[in-house]
Design a protein around this nucleic acid. Sequence first.
DNA 1: CTGATCGCCTGAGAGC
DNA 2: TGCTCTCAGGCGATCA
Length: 272
Amino acid sequence: MPELPEVEVTRQSFAHRIAGALIGSARLGKPLRWPLGQPAEALAGRRVRGVRRRGKYLLLDLDRGILLIHLGMSGSLTFSAGPAQAPGPHDHFDLQTDQGLLRLHDPRRFGAVVLVEDEADLVARKLLDHLGLEPLGDDFQVDTFHAGLRGRRAPIKQVLLAGDVVVGVGNIYASEALFLAGIRPTTRADRISLPRARLLHGAIRDVLSRAVVKGGSTLRDFSNAQGERGYFQLEAMVYGRAGEPCRRCGGPIQQLRQGQRSTFFCRVCQRP
DNA sequence: CTGATCGCCTGAGAGC
DNA sequence: TGCTCTCAGGCGATCA
């Protein structure tokens, strides 16, 4: 579910409410993708300073350590004050604070919660070091982006998904950004000229930032930490629209598979 | 180095 | 109704 916009929307929906909170206790449900790294009890007594995002990871800065949270494919967070509901079968992590309960709901359990002492921690480095440029940040410039595509013979769609050139672009927004840039998803990344890289750079920033404004995409059950759904899926130009008319030229949207993932594109509006 | 595959999990929907 | 199959927003590990 969650790509950069959904993770950022989630962050914005609870960062200000959890800032300064004192952790009373933590609870783990079924195992997630990686172990917490320490007993859940180790979180008690720590204080939450704030919440950052790196790619699709949320980083809860504590007065001692950092709690890394990844939503995987099906994860969502809620943060609620007042009496806590009993955890459901898919609620696999709770962080009880004096300002509310942060709860991770993740049916498929591809998500993770990892406690590290700092960003130099080996596990933190394994997860974060290889990540590419932040697409909404100042470092994401056309020339560095274009340089990152050099030497990449793989299809541009898959290079975007890999996340080592630019982070946060998942399966929905990769198709959407390539449509906006007029680039065929199968085009080899290293064959993209500087002018087309400029178009793609702009398209990535555009689609991700507009998706954040719309609260992300709710295809099935995504909601932010206040339980609110996203609406960007209503504006999708190609994703999930196989066989339907292109919103630009009217031709049928095509679907293909790249690396076990569905890709959607318009063969008229997107050139190789 | 890069690229292609493989799993990790559960649930929904299609087809028989 | 109930079974089997395919697919779903991610991504690290492994092998060529």
